[in-house]
């Protein structure tokens, strides 16, 4: 019952705030990683280099699917913004369904930017089906394909360390986030501007993906405060000996 109430509340807040945000866009705090990302997009278009976007290996049938969907939403916006570039972005993933969806998202992005002829089926790649196979398949792309910036957002594990190391060796920009705690600690140590926790899901709002992404971020903030209040309230009640 509690889950249903939370779901209903989140849905109502999301719809209401999306309606409000369409009239007046929200202002958010600065997140260095997303500022770097916006800079990297501009630089890659200007210098004719490539953007490498990795959306991880989140299986859509598991709870990890959320980060994969967030990565796809970001990919859609990035495709539109880089559609003018001579070098189309390369998208890598470690899950077959995700690879197909990434190709579809790339095509949609180009179509929206009226540049569908830029789309190549081989731009959306499945690089491996196990964590290390995925990393091993992605490393040559970071190294050999003229990549100036790497955006790695999605479900990853400790293998993220290999990708960050390859990006650093090529002196390429790196914006990385994961919903996995192991990967978050690896990325914290290895990336220039780490994204922690739910900041992964803020990507859409920070790269101008639309009112629904801004509303989603605000709904998350409201729900987070409610969770904090519930935890504090529960602690106080427990301290007072009130059981429920």
């Amino acid at each position: 019952m509690t889950a249903l109430i939370v779901l209903f509340l989140a849905a109502v807040l999301l719809l209401t705030l999306t309606f409000l945000r369409r009239k007046s866009p929200a202002a958010f705090r600065k997140i260095e990683a997303y500022e770097r990302l916006n800079r990297a997009i501009g630089l890659s278009v200007e210098s004719g280099t490539r953007l490498h976007i990795s959306i991880g290996r989140g299986n859509l049938f598991t709870a990890r699917g959320g980060s994969a969907l967030a990565g796809l939403a970001m990919l859609r916006r990035l495709t539109e913004r880089t559609s003018l570039s001579d070098q189309p972005p390369i998208v890598t993933s470690g899950d077959a369904s995700l690879a197909i969806l990434s190709q579809d998202t790339l095509q949609s992005g180009y179509r929206a930017a009226r540049a569908e002829d830029q789309f190549r089926l081989t731009s959306g790649r499945l690089t491996g089906l196990t964590p290390f196979a995925f990393a091993a398949g992605t490393l040559p792309i970071i190294r050999d394909e003229g990549v100036s910036a790497n955006v790695i957002i999605g479900e990853l594990g400790a293998e993220a360390g290999l990708l960050t190391d390859a990006a650093e060796r090529k002196n390429a920009d790196l914006i990385a986030a994961s919903d996995n705690l192991t990967a978050q600690s690896v990325l914290y140590a290895a990336s220039q501007a780490p994204l922690i926790g739910e900041e992964l899901f803020a990507a859409g709002a920070y790269i101008g993906a639309g009112a629904s992404h801004e509303a989603s971020l605000q709904t998350q903030d409201i729900l987070r405060w409610l969770v904090i209040l519930a935890i504090l309230g529960g602690a106080v009640l427990k301290f007072l000996g009130v059981g429920f």
């Binding site: 959320g66 969806l101 899901f201 989603s216 998350q220």
Partner: peptide
């Protein structure tokens, strides 16, 4: 961190459910 990730996942799922994001 996991509570934050769970809320993010919930909202991402709702966006797809309402057709605001269409990854297909």
């Amino acid at each position: 961190l996991l509570i934050g990730v769970a809320l993010g996942t919930l909202l991402t799922g709702l966006r797809v459910l309402f057709g605001m994001d269409r990854p297909y």
